[in-house]
């Protein structure tokens, strides 16, 4: 791949590049949602695409999430490859049935006859001072349900590769981009490590293959999406104190690369799981349960979860910073499992 051009892109730009390439190369791909055609999407996911592809393929819809997800599902069944821009993950509440009972189940309930090759784009997570109805991660609400792949890339390189893969997949794929990593203005400057040098060529990344972000021998930290960067900050600090932390980014919640996680814990014997979603019944429990089911005797100490407490995320900026799974909380958890 040509990496010589030094194009460092944000996650939003990298994802958009994949969308553009796929739309140029497959006439069945189209994007729809609120404010995508003229405005480019509230998260910039369709920035400039309206001018290139026209109003029929960058489709502005009336305000009804259940309506346009239903519409996209129908279009997918008809052979199109819709990309739905739903903006905030928080809004899945008004269209949850359209997602989990319809789009995710048609393939199974029709015995594979009616496929739904659709991508649902969600902006997830908080950390930018927007209150409890605009800041939730909620990936577990989707990953819990059968029938859809759920991906949550943490950086621009993965964003582009997964977006190509998601659009080409015959499965229904939910693509969750954390807003603080997106590089969109009103969410604040992107976390530097979420930006990547992006090859010009299209490329895909396989779902269900974790990335070892940093190798280590003392503790395994499994983190996804925005939490990966928090875990890395904690790991780098603790490196100075002589603790060797392995950071694993599964990148996709469904399918989940349990094998890589289990292999890492076999090596370190200690596990911390960091996630921005609510703590109970979530990603953190799933990871820990998966390891215990497979390797009940491998643990040198009890695993620890670092997640949002099971309460609504505060609007107040200082209070919000206290509930997020920040590097400070992850660092403490690592020190605790080392005891």
């Amino acid at each position: 791949m040509n990496m010589s051009n030094n194009r460092v892109l944000t996650m939003a730009r990298a994802g958009r590049e994949a969308v553009k390439w796929e739309m140029e190369n497959d006439k069945n791909v189209f994007m729809l949602g609120e404010d995508v055609y003229k405005f480019g999407g509230v998260f910039g996911t369709a920035d400039g695409l309206g001018e290139i592809f026209g109003a029929d393929r960058i489709l502005d819809t009336p305000i009804s999430e259940t309506g346009f997800i239903g519409l996209a599902t129908g279009a997918a069944i008809a052979g199109m490859r819709p990309i739905v821009e739903l903006a905030f993950a928080d809004f899945i509440g008004v269209c949850y049935s359209a997602i989990v009972n319809l789009a995710a189940k048609h393939h199974y309930l029709s015995n594979g006859e009616f496929k739904v090759p659709m991508v649902l784009m969600l902006g997830s997570g908080g950390g930018y001072n927007n209150g409890g109805q605009h800041s939730q991660a909620l990936h577990a609400c989707l990953a819990h349900m059968p029938g859809m792949k759920v991906i949550a890339p943490s950086n621009a390189y993965d964003a582009k590769g997964f977006m190509h893969a998601a659009i080409r997949s015959d499965d229904f794929v939910v693509y969750m981009g954390q807003k603080r990593t997106s590089g969109v203005g009103f969410f604040g400057a992107p976390i530097p490590d979420s930006m990547s040098e992006i090859p010009d060529e299209p490329y895909t990344i396989e779902f269900g293959v974790a990335r070892t972000v940093k190798e280590g021998t003392d503790v395994t930290v499994v983190a996804i999406s925005w939490a990966v960067h928090q875990a890395m900050d904690a790991a780098k600090e603790l490196e100075k104190e002589g603790i060797s932390v392995e950071v694993i980014d599964p990148r996709t919640l469904v399918p989940l690369d349990r094998e890589s996680i289990i292999n890492s814990v076999r090596k370190t014997g200690r596990l911390v799981v960091a996630d921005e979603d609510y703590q109970s019944y979530g990603f953190t429990s799933e990871v820990i349960a998966s390891v215990i089911e497979s390797e009940p005797n491998v643990f040198k100490s009890a695993p620890i979860r670092v997640a949002n407490p099971d309460t609504t995320i505060p609007y107040s900026r200082p209070m919000e910073q206290q509930v997020l799974p920040t590097s400070a909380r992850i660092k403490q958890a690592i020190l605790d499992v080392m005891k």
């Binding site: 996209a72 279009a75 008809a78």
Partner: peptide
């Protein structure tokens, strides 16, 4: 109902 609108859009 919305799915029918979408299928028709695809057609």
């Amino acid at each position: 109902i919305p799915q029918a609108a979408g299928y028709a859009y695809g057609q």
